[in-house]
Design a protein around this nucleic acid. Structure first.
Length: 563
RNA sequence: UGGGGAGUCGUCCAAAGGUAGGACGGCAGCCUCUGGAGCUGCUUAUAGGGGUUCGAAUCCUCUCUCCCCAGCCA
C-alpha cells in the first residue's frame, strides 16, 4: 500500500461506487448531487453531506450537481439559496454551471404524472388531509382504500388538469399514487404526489398552483439529471421502495439511492427546526452568530474551510447513529490554525504593571517571532516601555500549589522581553482588589534569555500600555451545557448555556494589530485563536475567540477545586 | 404487537473466517521563551446465549437494546 492509498477516505458508500465502477454500472460514470431545500441555513451536518457528495465525485473523476429541492413555496426563500451557494463555495466545492432546481422540472413532473394516470397508477383523491390520515391506518393496522381510488382514467385526467389550472382551492384534492394501502411501509399507502398550493414560488412565480411532493420530485429530478448515486440520510431508507417504484413505473433512468447516518455533534443542536427557533426567539444573534453550528456561524467564529473538510473526513461515513464529540471539531481547527495563524500578544483582562527601574519615556523595540511553526512567516517588532499590562490571571498574591506565574517576590519572563520580579502589590483601599503591580526588570535578560543561565518557570504575554490598542474580545463557550441538549427535560432550550458569550470590552492588543481586517485570524499567545469580526471599527477592533488553546493549568486548577 | 435500519474502547471510524487497529478524549512522562505545539508510553471495547469451524467481530440461530416511519414537510 502506498502513501496516497493510505490517505484516501474510504467508507461503505465509496466501496459501493468502486464496485459499480468495476462492474461498469451506470456506464462507469459517477454523478452525485447535493440537494438542499432552501428553507434555512446550512450547518455542519450539511457539511458532512457536501464533503461526501462533492468529495466522492471528485475522487472518482465524476460530477456533483448543486440542486435546490424547492418544491414547497410556502417555506422557501431566495435568501436561503444565496446563503447556501456561498457556504458550499466557502467549504471549497464548485458545481460549475450545474446549478439546478427541482422547480426546473415541474413541467416534466406534470407530464410523468399524466403518464402514471394513464397507466392506472395514479388518481385524483378528494379526501381532506384529515381523512387521508384516517384512511392511512396506523403503524400496526393497515389502511383503507380511498373511495376515489377507482375513478376512470378520463376522469382522473380531467380532474388533474383542473387542479393544474387552478379550479380547486388549496387542500381540496390531491394526486395520489395507487400502490398498496395494506403495505407495512406507510410510504407505500397511496402517497400524495401533488398537492394544491396557490402560493407564489421564488422561481416559477404564479405559474403553478400544484406542487409535487418530495418522494415524487426527488427521484424524478435524480433521473433527469442522470445521477448515479443518490446519497441521503437514514430516515429516507423507508422511502427507497417508493423512489424505486416511481422510476420503475415510469420506465426511466434509475439512479441508486444510498443512505448514511446524519451527523450529531455534542453540546449543540443540528436540526433546522431547532436552529430556526434559536434565531427567531433571540437566543442567538442571527444565523451567523458564532455560537451557531451553521456554516456561516462557524465561518464568522474563525473556522477555516480546510479544518471543516478535515473534520468531515475524520468522522467517517457509516450507517449507525452516532454522536461526534465537539472536542474533535476543536482539535481540527487548532491543528490548522497552529500551522497558519500569526502569533500576537493581547491582554484580555488587564492588570497594570509598572517596571520601577525602567527609565520613564524609554521605549525598546523587541523582536518577536510571528509563527514558531513556520519560520518563513518572519518576525516583527514589539514595543516595551515602563508601564505594561499583563493578564490578571497571571498574578496571584497567594499562589496555589503548582502555580508557576507571577506572585510577590517571584521572577518570570515577559515573552521576547525581560525577566521581571514582583516587588510590590498596590490594592484598592476599599475593595482590596489588586490594581497595580510594581516590578523590577533585569536589563541583562533583554530578548528573554538570562546570560547567567538562571531559569524562570513561566513566560507571560504582555503589552505596552502607551502603545496598545483597545479592543473587544468575544469569548464563546458551548451553546448548551449538556452533551445532548434536552435529553433529560425533553426541551433543548432548558440546557442553553447562559455563559455561552462573554464580551470583554477593555482588552489591549499589541500595535501590530492596527491593520487587522475582518476575517483575519490570529493566535493570541497563551489565550487562544481569534478572528477579527465584521463589527470591528477603526477605533475599536472586535475579535471572536474561535477556540482556546489547550490549557493544562486550567485543568489542574479545576481538579484542585474539586478535591 | 406493522415495516425499515443499527449494535466494536469514553467518542468516532476500521478489521470482508486468521495477531481486534487508528483518530479524538483521558492519564503519565519527555521537551519547550506560549502550562501552546511536538514527542513517547498507557488507555477495562466486539450487546447476550447457543451453534458451525483448527480458528468467528465476521457465518448460522435465538434473544436483548437503540434509532426511523402514521405531513397535502424535506
Amino acid at each position: 500500500m502506498n502513501m496516497e492509498e493510505k490517505e484516501k477516505p474510504s467508507d461503505f458508500i465509496r466501496e459501493i461506487i468502486r464496485e459499480d465502477l468495476k462492474n461498469r454500472k451506470f456506464d462507469s460514470r459517477v454523478h452525485t448531487r447535493f440537494p438542499p431545500e432552501p428553507n434555512g441555513y446550512l450547518h455542519i451536518g450539511h457539511a458532512k453531506s457536501i464533503c461526501l457528495n462533492f468529495g466522492a465525485a471528485e475522487e472518482f473523476k465524476g460530477l456533483c450537481n448543486m440542486r435546490f429541492d424547492d418544491t414547497n413555496p410556502t417555506k422557501e426563500e431566495v435568501e436561503y439559496v444565496e446563503s447556501i451557494k456561498e457556504d458550499v463555495r466557502w467549504i471549497g466545492f464548485d458545481w460549475q454551471e450545474r446549478e439546478y432546481y427541482a422547480s426546473d422540472y415541474f413541467e416534466k413532473m406534470y407530464g410523468y404524472a399524466v403518464e402514471l394516470i394513464k397507466k392506472g397508477k395514479a388518481y385524483v383523491c378528494d379526501l381532506s388531509a384529515d381523512e387521508i390520515r384516517e384512511y392511512r391506518g396506523t403503524l400496526t393496522a393497515s389502511g383503507k382504500e380511498s373511495p376515489y381510488r377507482n375513478r376512470t382514467v378520463e376522469e382522473n385526467l380531467s380532474l388533474f388538469e383542473k387542479m393544474k389550472i387552478g379550479e380547486f382551492p388549496d387542500g381540496s384534492r390531491t394526486l395520489r399514487a395507487k400502490i398498496d394501502m395494506s403495505s407495512g411501509n406507510i410510504n407505500m399507502r397511496d402517497p400524495v404526489m401533488f398537492r394544491i398550493l396557490h402560493s407564489e414560488h421564488h422561481r416559477t412565480g404564479n405559474k403553478w398552483c400544484i406542487y409535487p411532493m418530495y418522494d415524487y420530485a426527488h427521484c424524478v429530478s435524480d433521473s433527469i439529471e442522470g445521477i448515479t448515486h443518490s446519497i441521503c440520510t437514514l430516515e429516507f431508507e423507508d422511502h427507497r421502495p417508493l423512489y424505486d417504484w416511481f422510476l420503475n413505473e415510469l420506465g426511466v433512468y434509475h439512479p441508486q439511492q444510498i443512505e448514511f447516518a446524519r451527523l450529531n455533534l455534542s453540546y449543540t443542536v443540528l436540526s433546522k427546526r431547532k436552529l430556526i427557533q434559536l434565531v427567531q426567539e433571540g437566543h442567538v444573534n442571527g444565523w451567523d452568530d458564532p455560537r451557531m453550528p451553521t456554516i456561516s456561524g462557524i465561518r464568522r467564529r474563525g473556522y477555516t474551510p480546510e479544518s471543516i473538510r478535515n473534520f468531515c473526513e475524520r468522522i467517517g461515513v457509516a450507517k449507525r447513529d452516532s454522536m461526534v464529540d465537539m472536542a474533535l471539531l476543536e482539535y481540527c481547527i487548532r491543528e490548522d490554525l497552529n500551522k497558519q495563524a500569526q502569533r500576537v500578544m493581547a491582554v484580555l483582562r488587564p492588570l497594570k504593571v509598572v517596571v520601577v527601574n525602567y527609565p520613564e519615556g524609554q521605549v525598546d523595540e523587541l523582536d518577536a517571532i510571528n509563527n514558531p511553526e513556520d519560520p518563513g512567516m518572519g518576525t516583527r517588532k514589539v514595543p516595551f516601555s515602563r508601564v505594561l499590562y499583563i493578564e490578571k490571571d497571571d498574578f496571584r498574591e497567594q499562589p496555589p500549589k503548582g502555580f508557576f506565574r507571577l506572585s510577590p517576590g517571584k521572577e518570570v519572563r515577559l515573552r521576547y522581553a525581560y525577566y521581571i520580579t514582583c516587588v510590590d502589590v498596590v490594592k484598592d483601599k476599599n475593595t482590596g482588589e489588586v490594581t497595580e503591580l510594581h516590578c523590577t526588570y533585569d536589563p541583562a535578560t533583554r530578548g528573554g534569555d538570562s546570560p547567567d543561565g538562571r531559569k524562570v518557570k513561566s513566560t507571560l504575554h504582555w503589552v505596552s500600555a502607551s502603545h496598545a490598542i483597545k479592543a473587544e474580545a468575544r469569548l464563546y463557550d458551548y451553546l448548551f451545557t449538556k452533551p445532548v441538549p434536552g435529553e433529560e427535560s425533553g426541551d433543548f432550550k432548558t440546557d442553553l448555556n447562559p455563559k455561552s458569550l462573554e464580551a470583554l470590552k477593555q482588552c489591549f492588543v499589541e500595535p501590530s494589530l492596527v491593520n487587522a481586517k475582518s476575517g483575519d485570524r490570529f493566535q493570541f499567545e497563551r489565550m487562544g485563536y481569534f478572528c477579527a469580526d465584521r463589527d470591528s471599527t477603526k477605533e475599536k477592533p472586535v475579535f471572536n475567540r474561535t477556540v482556546t488553546l489547550r490549557d493544562t493549568w486550567a485543568k489542574i486548577e479545576k481538579l484542585q477545586k474539586k478535591s
